Amino acid sequence: MDLIALRTLHDRQLRIAAAPEGPGSRVERDGLVVRTTGPAHAWNGVLWSGLGPADADAAIAAQIAHFRAAERSFEWKLYGHDGPADLPGRLLAAGFVPDERETVMVAEARTVAAPVPLPDGVTLAAVTDEEGVRKVADVQARAFGADSSESAQRMLDQLAAAPGTIVAVLALADGVPVSSARLDLTPGTDFAGLYGGGTLAEWRGRGLYRALVAHRARLAVDRGYRYLQVDARDTSRPILARLGFAELTTTTPYLYEF
């Protein structure tokens, strides 16, 4: 893969030309900034910026003013190749707080779609209704130790408004949810996104993460998507690298709370 060309394609399709993620959300371009604004439970923030040293501070102040007027705390999703080089320091000076940095990784979907054997007694089930989403949210909360109610509501909104753009799956051990994951499908792009891969602690190390990656890769291929992309934590980055994913860039959420 030509990673520089792929990074440019990723920026153009998923950031600059981003689509609203659900009902009530809108994507707006404000000069050299692309942002999304929506309901309180939706993701609110800056998706892309093409700033330089001369205009960065004014653009940052404009986004703070916009989201203050909308009464929304928000995130500036900063990528490692975004300019200017001192943008992280400018965001800190403006009052943003950085969260955990992740690595954006990509792979040809076909190269990671080979089935991975599941442990005895484990089956995969598609999530299509509110009960399934609640099970996904429960697995996520237990796996990561964080509240997942807002992400669950976003999933429900997306399933209701655009069911063809999201696929969620549960791994069931004798009928009990032990792992879950999500595949986001953005129409008109080459990328399918892997999100929310979480496994209960007692089930880690048994191949469930790899199996869910392969399962979602096959779904992406079947729907005509060429690439998979994932914002990988340090815990999953080595696994993805062994599966054939390459590092494209990094991404760090800078949070601004009102």
Score class of each variant (00 low, 15 high):
1 M>Y: 11
2 D>N: 15
12 R>C: 10
18 A>E: 11
21 E>G: 13
22 G>Q: 08
23 P>C: 00
26 R>H: 00
31 G>V: 08
31 G>L: 10
32 L>K: 15
36 T>C: 11
37 T>E: 13
39 P>N: 07
40 A>Q: 13
52 G>R: 13
53 P>S: 11
55 D>W: 03
61 A>S: 15
61 A>G: 11
65 A>R: 15
65 A>K: 07
68 R>S: 07
69 A>F: 02
73 S>G: 12
74 F>P: 03
75 E>Y: 03
75 E>T: 15
75 E>C: 12
77 K>D: 13
79 Y>V: 06
80 G>Q: 08
83 G>P: 00
90 R>S: 04
94 A>K: 04
94 A>R: 02
95 G>I: 08
96 F>Q: 06
100 E>A: 13
103 T>A: 09
106 V>G: 02
109 A>C: 08
109 A>W: 02
110 R>Y: 00
110 R>E: 14
116 V>E: 06
123 T>W: 00
125 A>K: 12
130 E>L: 15
133 V>P: 05
133 V>K: 09
134 R>I: 10
135 K>S: 13
141 A>T: 14
141 A>F: 02
145 G>D: 11
150 E>L: 12
152 A>S: 14
153 Q>N: 07
154 R>S: 01
157 D>P: 13
159 L>P: 05
161 A>R: 05
161 A>C: 10
164 G>E: 11
166 I>D: 02
168 A>Q: 14
170 L>A: 10
173 A>L: 12
184 D>C: 09
187 P>F: 04
193 G>T: 13
198 G>H: 09
199 T>V: 06
203 W>D: 05
203 W>G: 02
204 R>S: 03
205 G>V: 06
205 G>E: 00
207 G>E: 05
208 L>R: 07
212 L>I: 08
214 A>P: 00
214 A>T: 03
216 R>P: 01
218 R>K: 01
228 L>H: 05
230 V>W: 01
231 D>G: 09
235 T>W: 02
235 T>G: 01
237 R>I: 03
238 P>D: 03
239 I>P: 00
240 L>S: 03
244 G>Q: 00
246 A>T: 04
246 A>C: 04
248 L>T: 04
249 T>C: 12
249 T>I: 08
250 T>E: 09
252 T>D: 09
252 T>Y: 10
253 P>I: 12
253 P>G: 09
255 L>S: 04
256 Y>I: 04
